[in-house]
Design a protein around this nucleic acid. Structure first.
Lengths: 250, 250
DNA sequence: ACAAAATCAATCATAATCTTTCATAAGCAG
DNA sequence: CTGCTTATGAAAGATTATGATTGATTTTGT
């Protein structure tokens, strides 16, 4: 068995199993314990997994927030619920824009079999996109190291080459008077243009940030549909009454 | 069995198998081990597959390979020597274009303290660029999963926003009649335009591929300076005599 | 807390594979 | 036919992967 075949096997198993014992791998590959150990060591150096006593486990994509780990996990399922609904709106053959951000990232695995074309300004989306074999285009622009987003006039200009069936944007807040808000003015500009270039525009948020606009920049786009979770019905009704935003729930 | 038939067979097998052992190929083609090795080497240079110990595997759709400690290339020191010289040409404050590819990647750490602005179409350069705190812009375009390069009309269009003090391009071959060559026509187009948009254009290669143009696409640009290593002086002289290419050595 | 069991890192010899080099054979132009 | 180029196979020596062994470290059971 080829070395890379073993490596691939291990990574594939970890996609389904979360963790795995060395003894299992010895049986599965009929390689020696030493070899498996070496494999795990190498894969760990490549940041593909984390060794634990007796085996290995999947890299935790957990941004360590020790005190709020429960809350983070709760947000994760919220993100996933929203992403699942957003992905269900995508039809076979659609050309879509995926905004940078963790919520839209959750959509990617769900687009696998839809034969979509994706344009994104999120560098962190790339790995998942190529891994799932999705035809992908990247906008150009300045690399915002903190968020991995491409922004600036170049980003907006390279958007102009495209027209989208649907745009999926992430936001930090919603405000009755101002519409959607996000902390970074440059990212807001990209979002706005991406929304304008789409026939339909959907805004995703898992944060319950209605009304609290701090350090936020407006990006307008009151015509978008809002996919949200975690806000009381009363607030949703208020949004629909006071704005032209259309609220969509699962 | 014809050489190209073997090549096609290998590529076909890799469409279904992910990876393949040299011994299997020896049995399937009843060619010698040496021949299969040569086939794999050639196909690797064309970026059609990746050699691994004992066989070959499909180009990994996962391009991010933490690559610094990598033992990847025997050409590494050559690459580094070339990269060091190329980087020495960069002056403080320059705006430069860095082509995708492993040779230009070696330049990045050396640009750290030069206060440069970098534009690149190489996704695999990103990690190093941000890590060294270099102001970076990315071109847009279609994501070529095999090489991690951004190509296509969108890539070229987003180049138009920029003007460079210097462009640094990687190539696979040099040909007296045709100028520089590279296997992929789309990547060639990007290289060509990036070269045109620069006041000075430097071409880097660590491959001693003078004259052997196989499956190559020309990208012209005979006005560029060539930074090379590993060719005999005689060949360099011939290049300068037969073309308008200016050869630069360290 | 202690001892037994399991797991680990380090080392070494061996086997498999790799690169380089050379010689032969096949195709082709003059 | 001769001279040239290209493809091929074979062999030597270098490199890499593997499996077994050793003694250290960690976990587990009591």
């Amino acid at each position: 068995m080829l070395t890379t075949e073993r490596h691939q096997l291990i990574l594939d198993l970890l996609k389904e199993k979360q963790s795995i014992k060395i003894q299992e791998l010895v049986e599965l590959t009929s390689a020696s314990e030493s070899t498996i150990r070496r494999d795990l060591t190498e894969l760990e150096e490549l940041q593909k997994l984390e060794r634990v006593f007796g085996g290995a486990r999947r890299m935790a994509p957990n941004m360590p927030e020790p005190s709020l780990s429960d809350k983070a996990a709760k947000h994760l399922t919220e993100k996933q619920r929203i992403a699942r609904y957003a992905a269900s709106l995508v039809q076979t053959g659609d050309a879509i824009f995926l905004d940078a951000g963790t919520t839209t990232a959750q959509m990617i695995p769900l687009l696998k079999d839809k034969d979509v074309t994706v344009v994104t300004n999120g560098l962190s989306h790339l790995e998942a996109l190529t891994e799932h074999g999705i035809t992908s285009y990247l906008t150009g622009g300045f690399i915002k190291a903190r968020t991995g987003a491409l922004v600036g006039p170049q980003a907006i200009q390279s958007l102009e080459s495209y027209r989208f069936d649907k745009s999926f944007l992430g936001v930090n807040g919603i405000h009755a008077d101002h519409g959607f808000t996000t902390p970074d003015p440059e990212e807001a500009a990209v979002k706005r243009r991406a929304g304008e270039l789409a026939r339909s525009c959907y805004v995703l948020t898992d944060q319950s940030k209605y009304g609290t606009v701090s350090f936020a920049h407006i990006f307008g786009l009151s015509e978008a549909a809002l996919i949200i979770d975690g806000l009381p019905d009363q607030a949703l009704a208020e949004i629909e009454r006071q704005t032209t935003i259309k609220v969509v729930t699962q």
